[in-house]
Write a protein that binds this DNA or RNA. Structure first.
Length: 301
RNA sequence: GGUACCAUAGCUCAGUUGGUAGAGCAACGGACUGAAAAUCCGUGUGUCCCUGGUUCAAUUCCAGGUGGUACCA
């Protein structure tokens, strides 16, 4: 059988984890988590990790493998996943990838260009200048460094402008000249399965999950992490809102509501991204048998 | 029971000197190449509480009703 990566995607809280475990169990396989926040070992209750029981049923990768203090990025994820896959495929021809971090998943699908990693000093400096001089400053700078990218970038999005300026300065070449849209051929097959349900139910599930996180002590965990609130790894739904509460800017109830709202928005953004991918086969999360039948048929071919 | 004030979008509210209305949040749609649970863009979705009166025209003015809030009993 040709080595196959079965990827299960969908909005947060739709039920990816349990289905992934069931399918992986059925094929005696392992799971690669594609979740940019479940990788941080300090984030325990706010990231909807697989339960200890689920982790015991199937071997998971990229769960709690980093510290919030570590630097990590999409490209590293792509490399790490490819390396892992080549070590797993000889033994297990079907591997599952389960998660909702769209850009990370995309990097595994198509690859991502080889760019230098952030120079924190440069980033801080540009950030400072942006704060002092506004977005016009970034636009003018980019216009000189990379007029081509300036034409097509979202000129209202400071992160995009900063990124392009950073890379252009670091490499001495226009950022856009380094973007070759690789679309690398993979030497394994990819089957994409999408899970979705009606919006109302999904939102109910999100609200319920946030309530459960609070019951499990999310506010206490956030309090412990408060000293590190400026780390990128903690710019995360479920924590950033509680940091505001810790600072006395919102009440605990307001923080909870904001977590629900921000999780809903996140789910929406995920769906916008996934909807664009025409190769995804969509299913209702409770139709496990249907998905299993589909997979068996696909893998037989 | 009396008096005063209020009733406009899913929520909080603005507004119309009478010509059927707009902000924030939510919601909805979208973008996305190392911050991605990030960052950013677009869209108003409405018996203007009900009934009657005045008027060419009422969400707006008047009367009554209903509901709410406050105070007085």
């Amino acid at each position: 059988m040709r080595p196959t990566l079965v990827v299960i995607v969908g909005p947060t809280a739709v039920g990816k984890t349990e289905i992934g475990v069931r399918l992986a169990e059925h094929f005696s396989s392992e799971i690669i988590s594609a979740d940019s926040r479940q990788m941080y070992k300090e984030l325990k209750t706010g990231t909807a990790l697989p339960s200890p029981e689920q982790l015991a049923r199937v071997k998971h990768h990229f769960i709690g493998n980093l510290s919030i203090h570590d630097y990590y990025n999409v490209s590293m994820f792509e490399q790490d996943v490819l390396a892992l896959l080549s070590s797993l495929f000889p033994e297990k021809p079907v591997i599952f990838m389960v998660g909702g971090s769209t850009l990370y998943i995309n990097a595994v699908f198509h690859g991502i260009d080889d760019l230098p990693s952030v120079d924190q000093e440069l980033r801080d400096e540009l950030q400072q200048q942006y704060k002092e001089n506004g977005i016009e400053f970034l636009r003018n700078k980019l216009k000189i460094l990379d007029p081509e990218y300036y034409q097509r970038v979202d000129l209202k999005n400071p992160n995009r402008l900063l990124k392009a300026i950073e890379i252009s300065l670091m490499t001495g070449k226009p950022y856009s000249s380094l973007l070759t849209a690789p679309s690398r051929e993979r030497d394994f097959r990819i089957i994409k399965i999408g899970l979705n349900k009606n919006r109302e139910e999904l939102f109910e599930q999100i609200n319920k999950r946030v309530d459960e996180m609070f019951d499990k002590g999310l506010p206490d965990e956030a309090k412990l992490l408060f000293p590190y609130k400026n780390l990128n790894s903690l710019n995360t739904v479920g924590y950033k809102e509680l940091f505001l509460c810790e600072e006395g800017k919102v009440s605990m109830d307001q923080a909870k509501e904001q977590i629900k709202t921000n999780t809903r928005k996140y789910a929406k953004r995920q769906l916008t991204w996934f909807k664009r991918d025409g190769d995804i086969h969509w299913f209702e999360p409770d139709h496990t048998n249907e998905i299993l039948e589909f997979l068996k048929k696909e893998l037989d071919e």
